[in-house]
Design a protein around this nucleic acid. Structure first.
Length: 220
DNA sequence: GCGACAG
DNA sequence: ATCTTGTCGC
């Protein structure tokens, strides 16, 4: 269980990431996964961040509950420091979910990050919950393009290490960048992302959160 | 110095 | 992320 301040400088944030990365655990899921949640953020014109968390039945992906969190947002967007901008709101939204999810999918990288601590890993450590990094584009690393069919995948490599998977979730549609967030293995991440979505590029929990946050944003 | 760069 | 209509393709 980690804890630290969020109102720090970019230089301090980088130092903190290097320190926290060592606490990320890449291990098999424990116990039955009954619920899976997804979270996404949106920003208002007046500088506030809106986060929506959606809890789904892990077997049917039916939506069981949703939670919204709105906060003023201070930290700017800096590639590599995304969690310092979005994690506070994401964490608050997920905490409002009842029951707490058994697995969480975050919109961004997990360990597929230059210092090994993307949004999904940071949130996983903070909440001590298994997380998967589900990103729509690459932050770092190299890879070949996976086949065009749903399920095709390629390794995402960085500094001689496999840090994630480039996964095709729909035929002929841009692949997703999947990586371990915390307390899960890469093969399990790939399986859960595939089983969590059939007709869309994004897995259902993430797609629901993405869709609902856009609407929630208008409501305030 | 040049190019890359999650959301 | 956000500003934004119609349009091409499976």
């Amino acid at each position: 269980m980690i804890h630290h301040r969020w109102d720090i400088s970019p230089a301090e944030a980088i130092a903190l990431q290097k320190e926290l990365a060592g606490q990320v655990r890449e291990e098999s899921l424990r116990g039955e996964i009954k619920t899976v949640a997804g979270v996404d953020c949106a920003f208002t014109a007046d500088g506030r961040i809106v986060a929506v968390a959606v809890l789904c039945n892990a077997k049917t992906m039916a939506v069981l509950a949703t939670a919204v969190e709105v906060q003023p947002c201070g930290f700017p967007y800096i590639s590599g420091l995304l969690s310092f901008r979005e994690a506070p709101a994401v964490i608050a939204a997920v905490k409002k979910l009842h029951p707490a999810p058994d697995l969480l999918m975050c919109d961004g990288q997990g360990i597929a990050h230059p210092r090994g601590l993307g949004l999904a890993s940071h949130v996983g450590l903070w909440l001590n919950v298994p997380t998967i990094g589900v990103a729509k584009s690459r932050l770092c690393g190299q890879h070949r393009m996976p086949g065009a069919k749903r399920g095709a995948k390629a390794q995402l490599r960085y500094q001689d290490k496999t840090i994630g998977a480039v996964l095709r979730t729909r035929d002929n549609v841009r692949p997703l960048y999947i990586s371990v967030g915390h307390r899960i293995t890469l093969p399990e991440c790939v399986n859960w992302v595939l089983r969590a979505g059939e007709g869309f590029r994004l897995p259902e929990p993430t797609r629901q959160a993405d869709q609902r946050v856009t609407r929630a944003k208008k409501g305030v």
